[in-house]
Amino acid sequence: MRAVLLFILGLKLTVAEIHSHGYIYTETKGIPGFPEFVSVGMVDGQQVNYFDTQIMKMIPRTDWVSGAVDADFWNRNAQIAIGAHQVYKNNIEVAKQRFNQTDGVHTFQKMYGCEWDDETGTTNGFSQFGYDGEDFLNLDFKDLRYISPVQQGVITTVKWNNDKAKIENQKHYFNTECIEWLKKYLQFGKSSLEKTVSPRVSLLQKDSSSSVTCHATGFYPSGVTITWMKNGEEHHEDVELGELLPNEDGTFQKTSTLTVSPDEWKNNKFSCLVEHKGINKEESEIRTNYGNSLPIGIIVGVVAAVVLLVGMAGIGYKIYQKKKKDFKPVSGSDDGSNSSAPA
């Protein structure tokens, strides 16, 4: 099976003062037992609502979110998700034709939403699409035009860029309605969204000759810095920083891997420094899974966090890197879009 099942980072929020709200749509084809369509609503990296085509209803993912919405919110947004499922199901078929593909495992996604800096008042929007784990299309908010990194997406960019009303509608949604919903959610979820949980840090190694991974997990909010230290100085060579991943309990995990020879490790003092919300944690003792020195629970815990993510949030891909209808904001809904597809 093609390697299209990477995992959702979520949304673009790495600075504590920048708040984010948005949705991730994931349509899948060819995965037995997995929902064809999943919709996840998020605020500051925390899931607030969820829909999939197996349960066929929108449900809350936090205790506080029900207080921020009206009684019909759940049914209204479930109907939006059902409509989006039909559009995105067609998206996959259109994309397959454009890429000259046959049946198999395929995914089509959209990630969109808004950001608000509570210190400067600056707002921003993001709207990105992906197919089979690769970037397909996104809206450049600076120039207000669609761009695509692949030839197969150019047909859509030309059509949508000629529809100025469509782009203005989206600009209005991301700059006003989405921000209003974000501020409302922040008000009702303040106690939960502003919590702080410090990371647990471990140095993990498969065997004496393999690379060493610094694993920080269980922290909230998502902003964290992982730095390797060598003899008391910052060390940046042969370092690979992993993606931020959500845990099942709403916290986050992240890794940084250092590749050095056993002799170099032995003859120098290496450590991993993790900085989070003003609290620093440093670890220098390696725990391995050879010699039975690493509890199996640590390994299982890391794997379980990823597996649970698939079950609750849908599969995805690394969509943010530095989805045959027009976009129309839906009144009374924080969703903002009931369609979007290659056309």
Rank of each mutant, 00 (worst) to 15 (best):
Q86F: 03
G45C: 09
Q128L: 12
F73T: 08
A71S: 05
T107W: 10
T107E: 09
N100M: 14
M56F: 14
W64R: 10
N75M: 15
Q109E: 11
T123W: 04
A81N: 07
N124Q: 11
Y112V: 00
E36S: 11
I59R: 07
F141Q: 09
F108E: 04
A71Y: 03
Y88D: 04
D103C: 05
K57R: 11
G41V: 04
G130P: 14
A78S: 05
V94I: 11
D135Q: 15
E93P: 12
M58I: 10
D118I: 02
K96F: 14
G45D: 02
N100W: 11
F34P: 01
T120F: 00
I59V: 05
G67Q: 00
V43P: 04
F126H: 01
E93C: 10
F108W: 02
D72Y: 10
Q86R: 03
F129V: 12
Y88K: 10
T120K: 10
N77T: 13
N91L: 07
D118M: 02
A84S: 06
R61T: 01
Y88R: 05
T120W: 00
Y50W: 13
K110Y: 03
N90Q: 12
I80T: 00
D135H: 12
V48L: 09
M111D: 09
R61C: 15
V43G: 02
D140S: 14
M42V: 06
G104K: 14
T62P: 08
V40W: 14
M56C: 12
R76I: 07
M58S: 02
V48W: 01
Q128W: 08
R76G: 03
T123R: 00
T62S: 13
I80V: 06
K110F: 14
V38Q: 07
D44E: 10
D118E: 02
E119V: 13
I92K: 09
F34T: 08
E119H: 11
H106F: 14
K142T: 15
M42D: 00
E119A: 11
D103Q: 09
K89G: 09
I82R: 15
G133F: 13
G83F: 01
Y88E: 03
F129Y: 13
N124F: 11
T120Q: 05
D132F: 07
F51A: 07
T62G: 00
H106V: 04
F73N: 04
D117M: 10
N90W: 06
V43T: 00
A95P: 03
V94C: 02
Q101K: 13
N75T: 06
F73I: 01
G125Y: 06
F126S: 15
I80P: 06
A68I: 00
Q97Y: 13
